[in-house]
Design a protein around this nucleic acid. Structure first.
Length: 271
DNA sequence: ATGGTCGCACCGCGA
């Protein structure tokens, strides 16, 4: 008896969190709605919206059962957090007094978990000015965590980090080793962020497995599985201890008009 | 056959 309520209780015992760089929310709106209907995740951190908040599809997402908080920007960047339960305590940007117009960070609290959706700078070429901006941005992010996040609390740093932490995270490491996604300096910068007190919860569930989240649109990257794992969910110990499984939805990278990034999932038991 | 793509906003730039 009461199978309906049992099912409901089981469903409430976990929280599924996704991070996904959609590469334009307008170009990906139909795929996003289909994705939400297919997986019904509790929280979705989005990056590269490429729209101002006025053009964000709040109504279509609300009709699909999701609240949304956004930090949008025209043409470039832009991040959001979607959630079935309404998020609270929304914060935007690195809050360090720098005059930085790039919308790359939003935080909100959902079901007792503080969640960040972050779009780390790509960095361009090592010689370009975008690369030192990336390094500085990562130091600023660490400083933000030091100032605003309690490492004893449940906190998730989710997003497109634009860093492959190790060679295991790259199909062809020799091709990328000198790049801004994988060189020793950027890996050290990522380690500095991680050392705040975070764990890579995807890697926790897949030690030793070469699984990727991004494939270049060019040069048949996806057909050759010539990918990198640069989209991550990093967790403080109190929430990392509750992680039960993690996976990449490779199906989302197939078919008509996919993003170059696939969604990365982690499922946590409810606190 | 040794290249090969997208999205946005324009005709280049960022990824």
């Amino acid at each position: 008896m009461a199978r309906g309520s049992e099912t409901s209780n089981i469903a409430r015992m976990s929280i599924a969190v996704v991070t996904w760089n959609v590469n334009s929310i307008r170009a990906r709106q139909e795929r996003l709605l289909a994705f939400l209907a297919r997986h019904s995740p509790d929280v979705v951190c989005l990056q590269e919206l490429k729209v101002e908040d006025a053009q964000f599809p709040f109504e279509a997402l609300r009709a699909a059962g999701y609240h949304a908080v956004t930090a949008g920007q025209k043409t470039y960047n832009g991040v959001a957090i979607l959630s079935k339960e309404e998020a609270t305590d929304v914060a935007r940007g690195l809050d360090d007094g720098e005059d930085d117009p790039q919308a790359r960070l939003i935080l909100a609290t959902v079901r007792g978990v503080r969640i960040a959706s972050a779009y780390f700078p790509n960095g361009g070429e090592p010689e370009s000015p975008k690369y030192p901006y990336k390094l500085a941005w990562m130091k600023r992010l660490r400083a933000y965590l030091d100032r605003h996040v309690d490492p004893a609390s449940p906190f998730l740093l989710c997003g497109d980090f634009n860093v492959a932490p190790t060679d295991l995270d790259i199909k062809n490491p020799e091709h990328w080793r000198a790049s801004v996604l994988a060189n020793d300096e950027i890996r050290a910068a990522l380690e500095h962020v991680r050392a705040y007190g975070l764990e890579d919860v995807f890697r926790k569930h897949h030690p030793g497995e070469a699984i990727f989240s991004w494939w270049d649109y060019r040069m048949l990257g996806f057909p050759k599985n010539d990918g990198l794992r640069i989209d991550h969910l990093y967790a403080t110990p109190s929430i990392a201890a509750r992680s039960e499984q993690a996976f990449v939805d490779r199906e989302e990278r197939k078919g008509k008009a996919p993003s170059d990034h696939a969604p990365v999932f982690c499922v946590f038991s409810d606190g």
